[in-house]
Each structure stands twice: as C-alpha cells, then as structure tokens.
Amino acid sequence: MEIHELERMARSIRRRDLEAVFAAGAGHIGGEMSVIDILTALYFRVLKIDPAQPKLPERDRFVLSKGHTACALYVTLAKRGFLPEAEIETFLAPHSRLNGHPNCNKVPGVETNTGPLGHGLPVAVGMAKAAKLSGARYHTYVVTGDGEMQEGSNWEAIMAAAQFGLDNLTLVIDHNRFQQGASLADTNGLAPLRPRLEAFGWEVAEINGNAMAEVVPALEHRSGRPYCIVAHTNKGHGISFMQDRVDWHHKVPNKEQYAIALAELSEAL
C-alpha cells in the first residue's frame, strides 16, 4: 500500500476500534489511537506475512507487547484477513476469543500472549535469536508502550539484543508520554529515550509515530545493530478531546462523546 492508502486504512481502523470499544463498554482507547498508524504500516506494508498461512516458518514476527491495546490489533488483523471482520463485534463478549489481551492460541496472527507489561521484548529477542541460530531470514518487530519501558525486564532484553548482535530486530516504542494514571514525567520519566537506548548499543531513530510518511521508512530501515524507533505519538490521536489526556487511557466515551469522535474520524476518512 502507498502512504495515502495506509493513512486511509489507519483512519478506518481507528473508527472501527472506537465503535468496538463503545459497543463493548471497555477498552484502552487512548493507547489504541496512538499505536494504530504503526500497526497499519506493519500489517499493510512492511510485514512479510500470509493470513492464509499464519504459522509459516519464514514469516516476519510481530509482538504487540502493549497487549492492552488488543482491540486495535484485532481490527488490524481482521482488515488484513486473519479473522472475519464481523467477529470484531464479539470484542469482550462472553466466550469470545477476542478478550482484552491477545491470545496466540486462539487468534491467528498473534505470536505470543501479552498483557502483563515487559514481556514482549524478551520474547522478541528470543525470536530474533532463533533466526540467527537457524539462518531464517525473517525480521522481528515488537511494539512496547513507553510506560512499559519502566519494567526492568525490558532493559534485560535490550542488553541481550545488543550482546547477541540482533540486527534482525526492530523495537518501536509508542512514546505517547502517558501511562495508566499519570504522565510518565510524574512517575518515572524515562525521557529522553534515545540516549538511553544508544548507550545500550542500539541504533535509534526518532519519528512522528502518527505520520505515516515517517513511520513506513523507519520500519523498513535495516541496521547493523538492534534498531529502536522512538515513535513520538499522541495518546488518543485523531479524536480531539481525547488527545494527550491521561484520563482516556481506558475511559469509554459516552453517547455524546462517541458521536463527536465518530464524526471526527469519519470526516477524516
């Protein structure tokens, strides 16, 4: 897909995500809106994957470590053909396989179960290391939240990736500057992320993570080292009253707010 098509797809995914969260009465809409451009670029341009053969050994690996934004992943997977689009209606419904955090044994295209934070990056390091051992040519991508980078396990994995020379690994940090209950600056700031990652032996790029024209080339870049994209994003991106507001981490819009949000996203379509 070309950039303008990807932008259109991202808006469509945002809208379907909003509808699903409103219908379910729960979700993590702020972090979903911030990460959707990255997911769209991955699934509709970058990842070498085949929805008809989701377990193909040579497939690129993608791990959504910020598993609480599962709804955005489900919508993306559905639009990419991994599951029926109509099934999004079952998000969080009793017995649905689409629960609040992705399950790799039930949802095609999901590689590992995430939800507790700080899990996806170590697993992605293992995936990339496996390719080094077997000679497989797939690339491994992992998206973490920025708040999640407060977990010590991520820094264990960052050190290991550099030690193992994993030039087949790309980490995208969705840097929307907010965690569940506060801005990062008010808890454990982490910023600036770039020098920290560089000090650990990674190549780092900083981009606007909500600008498709920056997201795509960054994801397609290959480094001689493990590669980190610090994606500066806006929590609630695309919906004016949610943008950069910590309370929209997992708040659900009321009817009036829903109408406004839907109109804003539809207008952009």
Partner: peptide, 14 residues
C-alpha cells in the same frame, strides 16, 4: 525474566 521470555521466543522460532 529475560531468560524465560527469550526461551519462549526461541520456541516460536522453531
């Protein structure tokens, strides 16, 4: 923690 996660990733990679 990384050790067990890496194990899971290695298994995913065959």
């Amino acid at each position: 923690q990384n050790m067990v996660g890496v194990g899971a990733g290695l298994a995913n990679g065959g």
